[in-house]
Each structure stands twice: as structure tokens, then as C-alpha cells.
Design a protein around this nucleic acid. Structure first.
Lengths: 203, 203
DNA sequence: ACCTGAACACCGTTCAAGT
DNA sequence: ACCTGAACACCGTTCAAGT
């Protein structure tokens, strides 16, 4: 046994991640197991543990890929226009990503860190990057110096869009199908931003 | 073996559900197993399957309890006042429930029906009841005949509050702690309702 | 050095057999 | 009638031993 080295360590890591991602895309997180990954890449289960700390660690690296793919989508969707339109474009890009790759997107929210450990710093940074796309798109709506308000509004919209998508996908919004979700998202953005700009003018 | 009947079937069902709930409250859904329930109630694993279809079915019944408890909280929070205040009260009640019993609340969203089966009708009805609390509280903000808009606004706010809570709890809102979540919720309600009522007046 | 695979401690679920 | 517990097909993870 042992010693075959047909792959470099880096290749092996990618092999593992590719297999894991493919399992998740078809069967969801519930379908993922270290043994199934091993079977697919024709290595023994132990090998997974030579390359990663454990299965949670594998999942975390898949999440990194998803966050990167999501950011690509968001940035690709940007185009000139008024802030409201930019934000709507971002939301549409987010929604279409979740609808095209539901299992992968869902992974981000159904997987929890083991209670004793927090998400690593690079993970938090990827989240912040995503949110900063929204914040930048909205910037013209706020007077200079209103960084706090702008930051808060970006978080509220981000979380709001997430909430609608998440409940619609899980069929927990009572009668709101996945398609109708985009109507709710538009409504949220329009009315929330109307409220925010009205208040900004008052101040 | 067999035949002891120290409990009626209904008692046995409640015994199982009580044990399951207690496991979830301390260790989360991940800590739940049919064998662990059996151990706690001093029955064999097979007994769980005499009383429930499977473990998912047990979880579904726990979810029913959580939805009922949540509705009790929401209705208890109601008091006279302008609609905006009523909605805020509901949101506060929701938030405090999630903070007091995070594992139980989380269950509602981390547990998915098996892909082949939908949530039963009574489950959907409980969800609708919760959402109707919001809709009723907001009713005076809408002109008569605007049922559609009212219904949509209730869903948007419900999903929005859920999204904020959910991301804050999972530490995925970057720097937004669980306490700060209530600030975001207030901001969402205030600005969204400001936008909605401005539009309603225009129409 | 690299990889294996047996071993340990768990699962969900079923169902023949016991009282 | 009610309940058991062995059986089957799975898990995650470790680590001595093989090449």
C-alpha cells in the first residue's frame, strides 16, 4: 500500500474539492460524505484526512468557491445607471445565481461552523466584499459623511434579499414561489430606498 | 421482550417529542438521533418507528411546537398603537424569541423536507397564521382594496426580518452581532413602511 | 513520503420473533 | 398488541503498518 504519487498534493486537493462540489450540486450537503468523495476519486477515505482537517474543512473550501463565483456574478452585472437600478441589477444577479445553482448557494447557509470555531478571517472578508458591492452601488444616495447609514442600509438590503430568497426557496413564504421572489425583491428595494432617501433629504 | 404498555400511545408520542426537543435545544439538530431519543426514554430504537414514520417526521412535529410557541409570543406582544409601532412590536417579539431559543428557532430553517415530499398543509397554515399577524398589524396603512399590496408588504417584512436575524445569528452579516440585529430590523421597518405609505398616498 | 484499510464508535431503518 | 434487538447498510475519523 501507499506511495503512488500520481498527483501532486495540490492536484489531489483540487480533485477532492471537485468531487465534493459535484456531490453537493447533485445531492446537496446531506449527500456529502468523506467516504463518497474517496470512492469518486479512487483514493481511500484516509487520504481526505491527509489533505484536509476534516469534512467541515472540505466544505469550507467549497463555500469559498461559491462566494467567489457569486462575487463574479455580481460584478459582471454592474452597468451604468441610477443607484436604484444598480442595486436592482445586483439583486437580480444574486437571484439568478441562487436559482441556477440552488444546492451550492444553499450550502452557504445550511452549513454551520462547529460550535467551538468561528469562520476564518478570509471567509469574513469574502462576505464583506460582497456587501461592499451593494454599498458602492448605493453610495450616491447618501450625503458625504453618512458612512454609517450607508453601511447599515447595505446590510439591511443584503439581508432582506437573502431572507426573501431563502424562504421562497425553502417554500416557507406561504404561496410565494421561487419566481415570485423577484417581485418581492423589487418591492423591497424600491420601497426601502424610497424611505431611506426621503429621510436623507430631511436630515 | 415486548408488551409493557406503561404508557399510552399518546403519552409515548409526547415522551419522544419531549426528548427530541430537549436534545435539539441543547445540541441542535445535528445532535439529534433516533437512537439517542430511545436511550433517553429507555425504549428501543424500533419504538420510535412504531410511533412516527421516521426521524424527519419527529422533527416536523417539533417544528409544529416551535411555530405555535412563536405565534403565542407574537400575539402576546400586541398592544394598541399606530401600525408602525405594532409591526415593530411583532418584530421585537420575533427577535427575542430567536435569541432565547436559538437552536429551536434555527430548526425551522435548517431542516428541509425530504426532496420528494412537501410540508403538510397544516404546516403551511401555521406559517400563514404567523404572517397574517404582520398583515393585520399593517392593515391601516393601506387603502381599502389594496389587499395585494398589503399581502406583499407583509411577506417582504417577514422575510426581511428573518433574513437579518438569520444572518446575524450565523455570524454572516460581517460585524453585525446578534444584538445589533435589532437596530437593523428597526431600520428596515421604518424605511420600508415610509416608502410603502408614500407610494400608497400617491396612488 | 505517501497512502491504505482495518478499527472504533457511531448512524437510520426494518422486521422476525418474543411476551 | 406492543416492543425488542439483531441485522443491514451506511457514517467520520484515526493511525499502525505497508511500499
Amino acid at each position: 500500500m501507499g506511495r503512488r504519487s500520481t498527483h501532486t498534493p495540490e492536484q489531489l486537493r483540487q480533485l477532492i474539492l471537485d468531487a465534493a462540489q459535484s456531490i453537493i450540486e447533485t445531492n446537496g450537503l446531506a449527500g456529502l460524505s468523506a467516504r463518497e468523495i474517496a470512492r469518486r476519486i479512487s483514493y481511500s477515505p484516509g487520504t481526505i484526512y491527509n489533505m484536509f482537517q476534516n469534512l467541515d474543512d472540505v466544505v469550507l473550501h467549497i463555500e469559498a468557491r461559491v462566494l467567489d463565483a457569486l462575487d463574479e456574478r455580481l460584478t459582471a452585472s454592474l452597468a451604468d445607471g441610477p443607484p436604484q437600478e444598480k442595486v436592482s441589477r445586483l439583486a437580480d444577479a444574486y437571484l439568478s445565481f441562487t436559482q441556477e445553482r440552488p444546492k451550492l448557494w444553499n450550502l452557504l447557509f445550511e452549513h454551520y461552523m462547529p460550535a467551538d470555531s468561528q469562520a476564518p478571517a478570509w471567509y469574513q472578508q469574502k462576505l464583506e466584499l460582497l456587501m461592499s458591492r451593494v454599498e458602492t452601488a448605493m453610495a450616491p444616495l447618501f450625503p458625504p459623511g453618512a458612512e454609517l447609514e450607508r453601511n447599515r442600509a447595505a446590510r439591511v438590503l443584503w439581508a432582506g434579499v437573502h431572507g426573501i430568497t431563502s424562504l421562497a426557496t425553502a417554500n416557507k413564504l406561504s404561496n410565494v414561489t421561487n419566481e415570485a421572489a423577484s417581485l418581492l425583491v423589487r418591492d423591497l428595494i424600491q420601497n426601502y430606498l424610497a424611505g431611506v432617501t426621503a429621510n436623507a433629504k430631511k436630515a
